[in-house]
C-alpha cells in the first residue's frame, strides 16, 4: 500500500491529468468491449463468455493488416470487420444451438471456444508477446494539459469510443433497426410473427458486439502488447463493468467502464499490488447495495 503516492498525485495537477487520461483510455476500451457484451446479453439473453477472444482477434487482425499495408485506417477496419464476420459465423453456427438451453450449456460452448481461439492464435501468430507499434501519424509531440502529458493517440482513442457510444445510443433508441432490435429483445416471438427474420437480428447483434470488441482490440493494439489469452482479463473486467452498470444498459456500461478505468489508474498508485482486487471489491460493494447494478432494471 502506498497512500502517500496517491495523495501526492491527487494534489498535483500534472499527475492528476496524466492519471485521469490513462484511466479514461482504460475505461473507453473497456466500454467498447462491455457494451458489446451487454448488447448481446440484452437481446440474445446469453452471456458471451468468449467475448474476450473477439478483442484478442481484433488486435491481431489489426496488427497483421498494419504490417501488410502500413495503413492505420485499414488496420482498424480489418480489426472491426474481421471480428464482425467471426461473430456472425460464431453465432449462426454454434451459439444459435444453445438458446434456451441452461446457462451451463452456454457457458460451456463459450468456454470451449476460449480454449480453441487461444490455441488458434498461438498457432497462427505464435505464443510470444507481439507489439504493433505506434503508427507514424501519431508519433508526434505529446500535448501538455495543465502540466500533464497526453499522447495524441489517447485523444483519438477516447474520441472513437465516444462516437461509438453516441451512435449506438441514438441508433438503438431512434432508428428503425434499433427499434426492431429492442422489440426482438422484448418479445422475439411477436417480432418473428410480424415477418421479421429474428435469426438475422440475432446474428447481426452478435456481429455488432463482436465488431465493437474487435475495434477495441484494434485500438488497443498500438498501446498494449499482444499475447494469446489477452482477452480473458479484458473479459473479466468488462463483465465487472456490465454488472456494475447493470446488464443490458448502454449508459450503465459507459459509466461503469469509466469508473473502473479511474479505479485502475489511481488504484495502481495507491495499491500497486492490489489494483485488480480493488475492482472486485468495488463490484461487490455495488452488488451488495444494488443487486441489479447502477442502471439495471429489475428483472421481469
Amino acid at each position: 500500500m502506498d497512500l502517500d503516492a496517491l495523495a501526492g498525485c491527487l494534489s498535483s495537477s500534472a499527475c492528476l491529468v496524466t492519471q485521469t487520461t490513462s484511466g479514461l483510455i482504460i475505461g473507453m476500451l473497456l466500454f467498447l468491449v462491455a457494451v458489446g457484451l451487454t448488447l448481446i446479453f440484452g437481446v440474445l439473453k446469453v452471456v458471451n463468455f468468449s467475448h474476450g477472444a473477439f478483442y484478442m482477434f481484433g488486435a491481431y487482425f489489426a496488427m497483421t493488416a498494419y504490417q501488410l499495408t502500413g495503413s492505420f485506417a485499414l488496420a482498424m477496419l480489418a480489426g472491426a470487420a474481421g471480428t464482425a464476420l467471426l461473430g456472425l459465423i460464431f453465432e449462426r453456427v454454434f451459439m444459435s444451438r444453445v438458446y434456451g438451453a441452461d446457462v451451463l450449456m452456454q457457458l460451456l460452448v463459450c468456454y470451449a471456444f476460449v480454449l480453441i481461439f487461444d490455441d488458434v492464435v498461438r498457432i497462427i501468430w505464435g505464443p510470444e508477446f507481439k507489439s504493433m507499434g505506434m503508427p507514424a501519424a501519431f508519433q508526434v509531440m505529446p500535448l501538455f494539459i495543465a502540466g500533464g502529458v497526453v499522447p495524441p493517440y489517447y485523444l483519438l482513442l477516447i474520441g472513437v469510443a465516444l462516437v461509438a457510444a453516441i451512435v449506438l445510443g441514438i441508433g438503438l433508441s431512434r432508428s428503425r433497426i434499433g427499434k426492431v432490435i429492442r422489440a426482438a429483445a422484448h418479445n422475439p416471438g411477436m417480432v418473428s410473427a410480424l415477418g421479421i427474420n429474428t435469426g438475422l437480428i440475432y446474428g447481426g447483434v452478435f456481429a455488432l458486439g463482436g465488431m465493437l470488441a474487435g475495434l477495441a482490440g484494434a485500438l488497443a493494439a498500438p498501446v498494449r502488447s499482444l499475447t494469446p489469452g489477452m482477452g480473458f482479463s479484458v473479459l473479466i473486467e468488462s463483465f465487472i463493468v456490465t454488472v456494475i452498470g447493470g446488464m443490458g444498459s448502454i449508459l450503465g456500461a459507459l459509466i461503469g467502464a469509466l469508473l473502473l478505468g479511474l479505479i485502475r489508474s489511481f488504484g495502481s498508485l495507491g495499491f500497486p499490488l492490489f489494483t485488480e482486487g480493488l475492482m472486485y471489491l468495488f463490484m461487490v460493494i455495488v452488488l451488495v447495495s444494488k443487486p441489479t447494478g447502477l442502471f439495471g432494471k429489475e428483472a421481469a
Binding site: I236, V243, F274
Partner: peptide
C-alpha cells in the same frame, strides 16, 4: 441471492479476487 447469470459471474469475480490476493 443473485440470479443465475449474476451468480455465475459474481462467484467468478470472487475467485479472481482470491487469486489476485494470493498473487499480491
Amino acid at each position: 441471492r443473485l440470479k443465475e447469470i449474476y451468480f455465475a459471474f459474481v462467484t467468478l469475480a470472487f475467485q479472481m479476487l482470491i487469486h489476485s490476493t494470493i498473487l499480491s
